[in-house]
Design a protein around this nucleic acid. Structure first.
Lengths: 222, 222
DNA sequence: ATTATTAATTTGTGATCACAAATATGATAG
DNA sequence: CTATCATATTTGTGATCACAAATTAATAAT
């Protein structure tokens, strides 16, 4: 697989392992990796043009975060989704993400608000044109554009690991179900931010997550 | 620091990095590591009698889980607690752990129940004698003795990372505040398990976590 | 054609080495 | 005694190598 073309070039201020880690995260979160796909340390190392060392550190980290699996066949794979995994991811997201948004609310300035509005515009366009890859990308940017405003030291990294776990699955399902059926709770989230209404923001995020996850759940039971 | 004496001997079926990881986890969760203490890869490697490679993998994993920090001074340290970290850990625990206990309830057989009763007995003794180290150990065993019954693939590892984060801090505070003031919601949890009463178990766990974390919070504000 | 057996290749793991950057140490000057 | 600078040591990082275990390919047998 041609990986380098889909990845940001290396910033030499960053360590090699961080570059590889960030790149793999980006590939996972953008739905580029599909469940079941498998790699080897040496294969990834060749793709990135580095030795196996930084790849081992990056991949092992993703394995410990649950985003990747080390199969018993000595291969690194993107985990398959199961019903119990999905149910727990849904519960964790519903508990943590609205709260995280609430924590971030007071740190969202007008510049960030405009950024969110712009992201949501791109999101609408992706939906109308059925562009699944862009949909996933802008949906991530919207959610974490809110969450990252608060820079929560515990919940933010935690929620990020949840997204690393379901994003590959998201890609498959969206490819089948399409993006037409998705409602858009982002508008009410933006209104809540404008009004500095914490409760309304929490409700909007909750509804958005619930609807998105239930759509995924339907596809899981096909 | 003499580490090997406080750690289980290596099971040769396990990889070296897993042995080191499990051992470091045990040391953190038992309160053996106090916030601020610092290490180097080579130092840990010498203590365990292995090369730096498995130590790098184990320590980097703990760093990515938030249990350890890589300081800007090139040292691996046990993270200091801050108020915002603490608040987020408290919220995450209160949201996730009672739910996790609820998921596990139906998988707790009589053998495990007896184990829990026995652990709680040891816990009472530790409280009555003011043995902080044992208190931490048996409290962990009690909680995870419940949680692990359900083998939840997402929530269980997630909650474990929360414990890795606050356990070192727990040790310090318990050393100051003592164990006398701690109430014991474990009894009502055991009753709820006997009755297969999910709601009662969730409430008991919630109260237990809330009380424990509020005691810690008082010490944080001294 | 299908299965069983052997050989060849590839894999993750752990150890070792080189290296730049950071830290600690020591000497020197005020 | 304190501050400053040069030197020596230690650090994390990344590359390379050895090796056993596992996978894959190739061969032989039915």
């Amino acid at each position: 697989m041609d990986i380098l073309s889909k990845v940001e070039p290396r910033d030499l201020k960053l360590n090699a392992n961080e570059w590889v880690y960030n790149s793999l995260c980006q590939l996972i979160l953008s739905g580029e990796f599909v469940p079941g796909i498998s790699f080897t340390f040496r294969g990834i190392a060749n793709s990135f043009g580095v030795s196996t060392m930084p790849v081992r550190e990056a991949a092992n980290r993703l394995i410990s975060e649950g985003a990747l699996d080390m199969s018993e066949k000595r291969r690194i794979t993107v985990s398959q989704m199961t019903q119990s995994k999905f149910d727990e991811l849904k519960v964790a997201r519903l508990y943590l993400e609205p709260h995280l948004a609430g924590l971030a609310l007071n740190h969202i300035n007008s510049k960030r608000l405009n950024l969110l509005i712009n992201i949501d515009k791109n999101l609408d366009y992706a939906i109308s044109t059925g562009n699944v890859v862009d949909y996933i990308k802008y949906n991530y940017q919207f959610h974490f554009g809110i969450y990252e405003a608060g820079s929560s030291p515990v919940l933010l990294p935690l929620v990020r690991t949840l997204w690393l776990r379901f994003s590959p699955f998201y890609r498959i399902v969206s490819g089948r179900a399409g993006t037409q059926t998705m409602k858009d709770f982002h508008k009410s989230a933006i209104d809540a931010i404008k009004d500095k209404d914490s409760v309304a923001l929490i409700n909007a995020m909750h509804s958005d997550i619930l609807e998105g996850m239930e759509m995924l759940n339907e596809s899981l039971n096909e």
